[in-house]
Every structure is written in structure tokens, then in C-alpha cells.
Design a binder for these strands. Structure first.
Lengths: 202, 202
DNA sequence: CCTACCGATCGGTAGG
DNA sequence: CCTACCGATCGGTAGG
């Protein structure tokens, strides 16, 4: 029916907007860019969205939601006796997958976050904090089990780790290194370090 | 004399532009924003700069140049017998200092790089590659001396490390953690890892 | 969904 | 450096 079609068009527009926001930034993307990408006239977008900012809101909401859900599911799906370090590894892999492979919204979120209007940043803040808090919980659980150094400043480390992965969208080349290999490397680097240990500890 | 004054005004404009580019992004910053920040009229800026893009070019040039020079000097200034790992530590500290403390251009560079016009990206490419190459050399030297694991994929690791530090401009809070402390932590994390080693190796 | 259009604002220029 | 202004383009609206 007609409502089905409208929902489809809405999604097509949102996908085009996410792609353009990701590639050009929010301000640099015009309603006419988005309209052209879906074969419409600029004014027609307002049949589906109240404003440009509403589109941005939906793209960022979708971005952080997908990342959060992907990571939590990947950890929840592990056997109950999985070591904490393996949970962290699964979370790293899932986070990178969501950023580099799920679609345009998570990538757009990682790329344009710093220059979002403050109204959207405020709205986004609780979800972002919840996601960071989940990661802190993962690290603290590994400290509790003795797998991670107890003196590690957890929150700063989580900021560092999440930031390092967000930046991967700028330099990762899927033709050179697969996502699973990259995730495994990054996990090795931050868990075991890169110094040479001939005895093979870690 | 008058030329002195003109040079000063040029610098003031460039500093204001860098600050605004850093905080709002390139497209979202208008010539009228910049003019207002230095107490001029919008048209007056064109007495000093041919275009908005010329200002962006000077800001990004200055940004990467400062980062590159700061890091190289910090390593060159070390005693000749300094271990390779200590050189890497010095480079991490210098890179973070240049990003978080030197001024607006390095921060602007790190923040807006991904959305630069391709003409500027192309112009910037050699300097960027040279900087990344310098880091690869530091890591390879440490592999040569046996201090870093020989199987480490150097280029990917450098992308990861530089990206992780660039992102620190988004989350670092100088009131919570000083730059030197942060640099030391990050060096510990990627060199030694965060796993708990009661024996205290590394 | 399109046509036709709006007020505002943009980067940039002419002339002083 | 300012005043005054330009053509283009922006987000958004009215009416169908």
C-alpha cells in the first residue's frame, strides 16, 4: 500500500543523507544534494522530514544505537565462562564491524560527532555515556578477575580505545587488512603491547 | 612601520580562522565569523587573503608543519645512546603536546582533515606521508634493535597510534589528566599492554 | 511528491 | 581597511 512506499522513500532519503553527511559533513551537505541522490526535488524532502536537523538527529541516533547494540549482542552471545579478555576482544571486533561494515550511520556518527549542533549533542549524551559506561564495565570486570592491571585508569583508557577505533574509519583499507584481522591486531596491541618478548608471555 | 602592522593583522586573522575552523568546521565558518572575531568587516579580510580556501590552506600547512617539527626535534634532541623505546616515548609525548598545547592549527588539522577539499588534501599529502614515514622509521629502528616484535605490521600500527592520539583532542580534559601523564599512559598501553603481569615484566 | 518561490546568508568584488 | 553591493545558493514554504 501507499504507506509502505512512503516508509521506503523515507529510508532511502535517510540513507542518502547519512552517506553525504559521512562524506562531506553536515553543513557542507545541502538538501539539494540529498534530493538529487534519491532523484527528487529539494522541496519534496520536507514531505518526509520537518528539517535538515531532524535528518541529522535520526542519522546520529541510528549510528550510536547500532554500535551499542552490535557490541552488547556480541558480548552477550558469548558462553558464560568466557574469560574477560575474550569478552573485550569480542567487543573490539564488534565495534570495528559496526563502524566499518554495517552501513553509513555508524561511520557518519564517528566522523561528524565533534561538529554536531549542541542541541543534538545534548540529546545524544545519555546514549553515548551509557555506551562508554558499558566499556568501562568490561574493563573493570577484567580487573576484578585479575586479568587486567588494577592500576589502569579505566575511563581514560576507554576514551583512548574507543577514539582509536573511531579514527580507523579514516585510514582502514579493507583491501589491505580485513576487519577481523585488524580487530585482532588492535586487541593484541592494547592488551599485550608491542614490545618484543622472546619468552612469549601474555 | 606599516608592513609590520599588516603582518600582525594577517596573523591575527589566521589565528581566528584556525580557532573557528577547529571549533565549527570549515564550511560552517563564514568570512563574517572570522571578521567579527578580529573586529573587522567581512570584505576587509580580502585585503590579506585571496580566498577562504587560502586561509584553510595556511591553517592546515601550519598544523602539520608544527606537529612534524615538534616530534622530530624532540627525538633529535635525545642523547645518541637513547634506547629506541625511549625515542618512541618522546615522540608520543611531543605529538600530544603539539596537538593539545601548541595552538589552534595542529588541533584544527587533526579535527577537520577528513573533510578538507580534495585540492588541499592532495597538496597536503606529501607532508603527511613524510610524517607517517618518520614514525614508521622509529618503529622499524626499534624492531632492528630487538625492542619491538619483528612481526608487527608497522604501517597499520602507525595509522592506529597516530589516529588514537588525534582523537585525544576530542576527549582529553587537561583538568583531569596532564599531557605528560597521558603521554606516559598511552606509551605504556601500546608498548607494554594492559594485561596484568604480577611478575612485572615489560 | 512537483512547481515556484521566499528571505536570509554566503563568498567575493568595486571603489575608495 | 570600510561601504556598499553582486550573483549564487541556502533551508524552508505555499499550493497543488
Amino acid at each position: 500500500m501507499k504507506q509502505e512506499r512512503a516508509v521506503q522513500s523515507r529510508l532511502r532519503i535517510l540513507e542518502a543523507a547519512g552517506t553525504l553527511f559521512r562524506d562531506k559533513g553536515y553543513k557542507a551537505t545541502t538538501m539539494r544534494d540529498i534530493a538529487e541522490a534519491v532523484g527528487m526535488q529539494a522541496g519534496s524532502i520536507y514531505y518526509y522530514f520537518a528539517s535538515k536537523e531532524e535528518m541529522l538527529r535520526e542519522v546520529t541516533d541510528s549510528g550510536i544505537s547500532i554500535i551499542d547494540a552490535t557490541v552488547r549482542q556480541s558480548v552477550t552471545g558469548l558462553p558464560p565462562d568466557t574469560p574477560q579478555l575474550q569478552r573485550i576482544r569480542a567487543a573490539i571486533r564488534a565495534h570495528l564491524h559496526s563502524l566499518l561494515q554495517t552501513g553509513e550511520c555508524p561511520t557518519a556518527y564517528a566522523r561528524i560527532y565533534s561538529q554536531l549542533p549542541s542541541s543534538i549533542k545534548q540529546r545524544d549524551h545519555p546514549m553515548r555515556q551509557a555506551y562508554i559506561g558499558y566499556w568501562c564495565g568490561l574493563i573493570e570486570a577484567a580487573q576484578g578477575s585479575g586479568e587486567i592491571a588494577p592500576e589502569l585508569p579505566v575511563h581514560t583508557f576507554v576514551d583512548f580505545l574507543l577514539g582509536s577505533m573511531s579514527r580507523a574509519v579514516e585510514w582502514h583499507d579493507p583491501k589491505a587488512v580485513g576487519i577481523d584481522a585488524l580487530a585482532s591486531w588492535i586487541a593484541d596491541w592494547v592488551l599485550k603491547g608491542i614490545v618484543h618478548r622472546p619468552a612469549g608471555a601474555g
